[in-house]
Design a protein around this nucleic acid. Structure first.
Length: 576
DNA sequence: TCAGTTCGCGCG
DNA sequence: AAAGCGCGCGAACTGA
């Protein structure tokens, strides 16, 4: 270990710069890149002592050397690179070149190696059989540093070098090198996205919030009056229901509805909707809609506005879902309601525009690629809209009579049937979205018709059903291994959802390269959609660039199906 | 009392 | 044998 203070150490930097691999770890004073700072940067390299650099006690020339090193061409190994890269970027020490992330590597190996925890200590134990203590992990890195702290810091980075070696072997063994490169290349995009954040129109949000509160209050008053079981009791403070029903308790609501003679065995939306003609049920659904929106979004989202940047910096888990998709939290932008009133609150900053691009029917295109369904391939080649096609089938309308809502709804039917939704599921779906009862016969008929039209899909189902194993891969080679043979629905869905994730990750990685050096900001990604923010004057050019990049990324994995990306320049997220 | 699980529902 | 899949979140619920 070599602790670097004020003394010049350019010779060490020289050695490090000629090293192919650097394992880098940082110690920070906290978890927030705006409120907290990087204190130490530890750099390990094969055959060299670990360099521990105190950023708070370093000369300008050494700072410059470090900056060059981090921007240099060597492979940088991190554990959870996103975290360190965010801090280093915020400290104006950006990292370029190839990154190897031991955490992401372990996540790719998760199902193969049967690991469920991804802390450095967990991986050290699992892959190297080393037990390391973490007692200094949460120590105070803002004061005078002890020898123990420095040794702890040095140890982690040298551990990374050994860990990487084993992980590379494992990745190779399970043929995960390609997908690992995909994930690693995507890291800088995720870093940018989280640092950039999304701007919320707070005033507009609060107006919507007030509206929903009054809607909730109205529905609640009505329901409490109608569903009240006990007598209304007088209290000192006026007429109040002391033993009022809790409308959020499924148990209580179910009992109360049953008492009113509404035959139900649960209070789920799909059950309730069968009694929609009953005003009690209708108001209950209104109540649910308003209170769900309030508790899930209206109260929490504003609390995510960052005190320093004034923007919302969600946390993206790069391998958050077992199919390979991102998950998102704090807040989860992937579940903001589609309704205009919500999304129009997410806006571009002054003088900027949002460029919103989404893959058109990407999962269906992946299905077409995997199943070689002739009708689908043909439809895509002729640039037909398959959701619209299915919607027309379902409603017995002409293609051009299909409404936006019907088309939106048909999406679910397409996905449902492709992923082996049963007749009952289809019935339930029809009730939920159309509010119409679909007889079992009709659902059966429609299902049959669907597979008549898409015979290749039907064949693909048969093939997969008869031959799939515990190992399922996407087109990038991403592996999902099951303990037992998965359900057939998993075998249908995983390669499709996973390949779509591969494609958008490829696009994000490519996009960041294309945008480097510009003022264009990647700010969000929602499964098949990428949002960037650009100065108004560049918006149209950026829109073309974004579309082109995303389509190219699609072509990388889908060889026989054209990829289409819809893109638009907007002031807010609702204008699509 | 508290951690873990389930329900219900928002998105793709 | 039968089956849409994948998430996160908050409130309610469960178990010790």
């Amino acid at each position: 270990m070599f602790v670097m203070g004020k003394n010049k150490l350019s010779r060490y930097f020289y050695d490090l710069r000629h090293s192919k691999i650097l394992a880098i770890d940082t110690e920070t004073t906290g978890l927030d890149p705006w409120l907290h700072k990087v204190r130490l940067v530890q750099i390990a390299s094969p055959g060299l002592p670990v360099l521990v650099i105190d950023l708070w006690d370093i000369s300008q020339s050494d700072w410059n050397l470090l900056k060059n090193l981090l921007a240099g061409p060597s492979i940088k190994v991190f554990h959870n690179a996103k975290f360190d890269l965010k801090f280093l970027t915020a400290a104006n020490l950006p990292v370029y070149g190839q990154v190897f992330d031991t955490m992401l590597a372990a996540k790719l190996l998760r199902t193969a190696n049967g690991i469920y925890k991804y802390g450095l200590a967990d991986l050290a134990f699992h892959y190297l059989g080393e037990e390391i203590d973490k007692e200094h992990q949460n120590s105070d890195w803002s004061g005078r540093l002890t020898k123990e702290q420095l040794e702890y810091a040095a140890r982690d980075s040298s551990l990374l070098l050994r860990l990487r070696k084993t992980l590379v072997q494992e990745l190779r063994r399970y043929k995960l090198i390609e997908v690992a490169k995909l994930e690693f290349d995507c890291i800088p995009a995720v870093v940018e996205m989280e640092l950039n954040g999304f701007l919320l129109d707070r005033q507009r949000w609060d107006v919507l919030k007030a509206q929903l509160i009054s809607e909730q209050r109205e529905a609640s008053a009505y329901l409490k009056k109608e569903l009240q079981t006990g007598p209304v009791q007088l209290s000192l403070f006026g007429n109040q229901n002391v033993c009022a029903i809790n409308l959020k308790s499924p148990k209580q609501v179910l009992a109360a509805l049953q008492k009113k003679g509404i035959g139900l065995d649960n209070t789920s939306k799909s059950s309730l909707i069968t009694h929609i003609e009953n005003p009690l049920v209708k108001v209950l659904l209104d109540y649910r809609r308003a209170s769900k929106a309030l508790q899930a979004f209206m109260y929490s989202v504003p609390s995510c506005i960052h005190p320093v940047t004034g923007r919302i910096h969600s946390n993206y888990q790069q391998i958050g879902a077992s199919t390979g998709r991102f998950s998102c939290s704090g807040p989860n932008l992937q579940q903001i309601p589609r309704a205009k009133e919500f999304r129009e609150c997410f806006i571009a900053s002054q003088g900027h525009k949002l460029i919103i691009a989404d893959y058109s029917q990407i999962e269906l295109r992946v299905v077409a690629e995997l199943s070689r369904d002739k009708t689908m391939i043909e439809a895509f080649k002729k640039e037909q809209d398959i959701h619209r096609l299915t919607a027309a089938l379902l409603t017995n309308k002409n293609l051009d009579q299909v409404t936006k809502e019907e088309r939106q709804a048909a999406k679910a039917v397409n996905f449902g049937l492709i992923y082996a939704m049963g007749v009952k599921g289809l019935q339930a779906y029809a009730q939920e979205t159309y509010g119409v009862q679909m007889t079992e016969e009709k659902a059966q008929l429609f299902r049959a018709r669907f597979f008549e039209v898409y015979q290749g899909v039907s064949k693909w189902h048969q093939t997969v059903k008869s031959s799939y194993s515990r190992e399922i891969r996407t087109l990038s080679g991403r592996l999902r291994q099951y303990k037992q043979r998965p359900s057939v629905t998993g075998a249908y869905n995983t390669p499709v959802q996973g390949t779509s994730a591969d494609i958008i990750k490829k696009a994000m990685a490519m996009l960041l390269e294309v945008l480097s050096g510009t003022k264009v900001k990647l700010i969000a990604t929602i499964h098949d959609e990428i949002i960037v923010e650009a100065p108004e004057k560049q918006a149209i050019r950026v829109a073309e660039l974004l579309k082109e990049t995303m389509e190219q990324a699609g072509t990388f994995y889908l060889k026989s199906i054209p990829i289409v990306v819809d893109v638009g320049v907007h002031d807010n997220w609702a204008e699509k």
